[in-house]
Amino acid sequence: MSELRWHPLLKEWVITATHRQDRTFLPPKDYCPLCPTKPGAFPTEVPAEDYEIVVFENKFPSLQYPAPEEAVEGSELYMVRPAAGVCEVVLYSSRHESTLAAESEETIRNLIEVWTDRYNELGSKDYVDYVFIFENKGKEIGVTITHPHGQIYAYPFVPPMILRELDASREHHENTGRCLMCDIIGEEKRDGRRIVCENGSFLAAVPFYARYPYEVHIFSKAHKGSLPEFTDQERWDLAKILKQMLLKYDNLWGMSLPYMMVLHQNPTNGERYDYYHFHIEFYPPYRTKEKLKYLAGSESGAGVFINDTLAEEKAAELREIEPK
């Protein structure tokens, strides 16, 4: 059973997906469903002895097409919609012990091409308004399978966080004639203290408004709204800065740092969003090597983040770390 239920107070959709309760939970290495299928061994999700990058539809999807019948009837106040969409799993490597940080720049460059292909293909479906590419890494984030992988949710609506960014970007553009994100990049460059690293096409910073201690945003220096707009050189530069940033994270405390990585780009609902600007956001859940940052009362109940650190200090810390 799966459906979209309208939250009338927050004016946003909640996805119910009760079948996901039965999904695979931290299987032993020899029974990883994302590894290649070895001769004589149990069949995994990938019926091949090896692979480079693989994408497949999630066995336990929150959204699917055609969508299953709703479990309940809606009303004028409590609206219900079919949970139509697509949930995909993106396998970065056939090596179970790998991570995105451990992969080569070439593999990350290839992954960017796969992301672009999925954005185009899923975004072209008439029931998909937004293609959301992300990775949850680490048990602390709730990852149920440790094999290196990311996910894609193709939503039948534009998600609320993206809507807020779009609204802010449109308002700024109407008031100033400029792109909000381009102005943010300008502000970060003028100040300089929050920049972690950069190359010809991208800039990574702990932004002024960071909500997590080690939150980093990677901004495209050129005003571009989505992955298909990037040139070959920009894709290489994105792969390089991603690799650099991930190595810095892993070298921060000498451990494979858990994080959420999310790509924010244009919706695919057929409307124009010339004022929006591509970027990637990282939210690592740790505030020190031993302490987690919890989304507690203020964050979950009031939507107010409390960051116990200064972005300027955390950026300096990350800037000093060698990306080796």
């Binding site: 990058i53 497949f56 539809e57 290839n110 091409e113 290489w236």
Partner: peptide, 30 residues
Amino acid sequence: MKKEKIGISGERTLIYYNFSKKTKESEEKK
């Protein structure tokens, strides 16, 4: 980039993305 789509259990789609040849070409460009 080469794409190969196949069907897997539960009427789902799986796509193999192969780059071996492309990567060598890109490496020269890089």
